[in-house]
């Protein structure tokens, strides 16, 4: 079993296309993410980065192509099922439960039963409380556990959202522009945080901030017009003439 899993890539996209009203947002895209790998994705606006995440998480159905997660066809499942299979997603705009405390945010996200009736009668166990405390430490919000999420700064919301994803304990984390709107210090911290997370699970990061990508120091995929333009180390990709042409500029 584990042998088989190690041979199968964690995420496997092949020949994926999707069009909106004739506009091809994703055009014959192929991408493979291995177990424990961290991948950075760059590309100009409209390259299809967010649409790709929509496809992986079940928000958008592809017109053609294969999308496999641990060998399972993701196109047959909806968002909630895919989330429960072990894919967590952070949105471009931080999306947390603003009217709940930080603690409650993490509690709701914590891995466990997603059944409605169990949620009605559920009580918290000591392990759950411990786990939440751990995550609070990781996202550096220990002493603000009872603050309403609405009262957090932009960067703190981003971290809270990452913390909620950790609470879900996913195998694959999709992170959409995590450092947008962050201060430089916060950006550095976030890079650290993501590297820490990637020790135990696979992470896909979409980002524009090249210094952040450099901090991450991982394999980079550059998308353009819905397809892979170039793939490899950051140095390899950023010296690729096609990438310079369409994205980085001369």
């Amino acid at each position: 079993m584990s042998k088989f899993l190690e041979n199968t890539p964690l995420l496997y996209l092949d020949g994926v296309s999707v069009a909106f009203d004739g506009f091809k947002a994703i055009n014959n895209l192929s991408l493979v993410v291995e177990h424990g790998e961290m991948r950075a994705i760059i590309g100009p606006n409209g390259a299809g980065k967010t649409t790709m995440m929509d496809i992986i998480t079940g928000k958008t159905r592809p017109d053609h192509g294969t999308v496999l997660f641990e060998g399972q066809d993701l196109t047959l499942h909806d968002e909630a099922q895919i989330a429960n299979m072990g894919i967590g997603r952070k949105f471009q705009k931080p999306t947390v439960f603003e009217n709940h405390s930080i603690y409650d945010n993490l509690l709701l996200a914590l891995k466990g039963s997603r059944n409605v009736f169990q949620a009605l009668f559920s009580t918290q166990s000591t392990e759950q409380k411990q786990r939440i405390d751990e995550i609070l430490a990781v996202i550096r919000l220990e002493n603000r556990r009872d603050t309403l999420a609405a009262d957090l700064s932009h960067g703190q919301k981003q971290w809270l959202e990452i913390g909620m994803l950790l609470a879900q304990d996913p195998k694959l984390l999709l992170v959409d522009e995590p450092v947008a709107g962050m201060t430089d210090a916060e950006t550095v911290e976030t890079a650290k945080l993501l590297r820490e997370i990637s020790k135990t699970r696979s992470v896909v990061v979409v980002e524009h901030d090249m210094s952040f990508i450099r901090d991450l120091d991982v394999k980079v995929t550059c998308l353009a017009e819905g397809a892979v333009l170039s793939e490899g180390s950051l140095n390899h990709v950023s010296s690729d003439p096609k990438v310079i042409e369409s994205y980085l500029g001369r």
Binding site: F20, D21, A25, T50, T51, D54, K59, T60, F91, K93, T95
Partner: peptide, 8 residues
């Protein structure tokens, strides 16, 4: 309906 990348 107008199609498009669904709004968040």
């Amino acid at each position: 309906a107008q199609k498009g990348r669904a709004v968040e």
